[in-house]
Design a protein around this nucleic acid. Sequence first.
DNA 1: GACCTTCTCACCTACGTGTTAAGC
DNA 2: TCGCTTAACACGTAGGTGAGAAGG
Lengths: 229, 229
Amino acid sequence: GELAAGREKGDPTEKRLVVTLEDAELWRKFQEITNEMIVTKSGRRMFPVLKVSVSGLDPSAMYSLLLDFVPTDGRRWKYVNGEWAAAGRGEGRCQENGRGQGEGRGQGGGRDHEEGRGQGGVYIHPDSPNFGAHWMKAAVTFNKVKLTNKMNSGGQMVLSSLQRYEPHISIVRVGSRPSLLTNVSFRETTFIAVTAYQNEEITALKIKYNPFAKAFLDTKDRNPSGRSL
Amino acid sequence: GELAAGREKGDPTEKRLVVTLEDAELWRKFQEITNEMIVTKSGRRMFPVLKVSVSGLDPSAMYSLLLDFVPTDGRRWKYVNGEWAAAGRGEGRCQENGRGQGEGRGQGGGRDHEEGRGQGGVYIHPDSPNFGAHWMKAAVTFNKVKLTNKMNSGGQMVLSSLQRYEPHISIVRVGSRPSLLTNVSFRETTFIAVTAYQNEEITALKIKYNPFAKAFLDTKDRNPSGRSL
DNA sequence: GACCTTCTCACCTACGTGTTAAGC
DNA sequence: TCGCTTAACACGTAGGTGAGAAGG
């Protein structure tokens, strides 16, 4: 774990709440050359996997961890001449405006409407709900979340291709007195949603580090096109 | 769902609590000829899978579902001449005596000590803890529990080979006021723990109904030794 | 034509089966 | 020997990869 983002709240129990991104080095390798994530009709997992360690919760209180994807801008992006460039406006579907960061909603209110919908909205970590002790005893992995560009029947996060997103993790207390505790994101996890990889260096990194792509490791190694990743 | 077992308690909320065994017909096919479950060092899943539907919970209250295996007797069993027969006493490893059935623990008390240990003790359903609504919206499947004969590092249920067990499911309320609500078992899920199948009819049933054993379906079909299962 | 999307595919990971032979 | 246990194995299920061709 390497990057920490903490917020304080008026609540006495979770004052020292800290959320740390795991595998930050790996994320940075992708981020340096602009990360891409595949979206498919049936849903595609993320790689790298979003993984955070949490501390500062009340071990015996009950929490849920939420994940959503916030567009970093209203733009579409194009990959031309080996570089990502902003194209025109956000394709008309101005669905993203309610989720910006300058709204004063980060401290506990604000999410009241728009929450129950669940389509393209919020991914609830499958361990939810659970005790603070559970979330803190080991890093929390979002390896099962799937990204899609179609509205399927639930569970998958709907993104628009060629738009840029930043994953946001929320911790909410459930039970007797539900409340939003924190809402963190990590810049190195930003990515552009694509239906096919644009930058072949991204492809090479995915193949190199994702065990499920090991079938293509040989192919890329035999192609001695030079640079070591 | 076919077999229901309900218990009432002094608590006003869960008076109508009912737990129903799913796939009872399949369980009965095995039970008729004395069911066996493999135990291995690394842990073996159960087949059939323990699956129950639950109703009568408070949808917004928080519960955990627990599974443990109660020896039906202190005996070891032997498979001789195509039949199971009781052998001598419980092999000297008198580790099981605290869990017998004549103890008056069936209605809600009695489990207070011995619970936290977790080794060979209690399997907590991975969805735990969760809302009553979650447990009731679909049948609860214990397909991930693993049976072992060695004390591994956690998660697996330690059983003694050639002993007979009955799975017990407990529903506990967690959170503000923890309490054991009910404690049910189903006779058709009784089995003898074995390191290798003794009754070849059990083997045939496992192969016939467990998708993971499909590799052996052909073998058994080509052997036209007669009876249809 | 250029760009983006969709589908099928071979090839992996990961792991659940009973079988079989060896071990004790 | 006999009874029980263990480990290696072949063969499944289940599903996650990018490649490549086809579609729009």
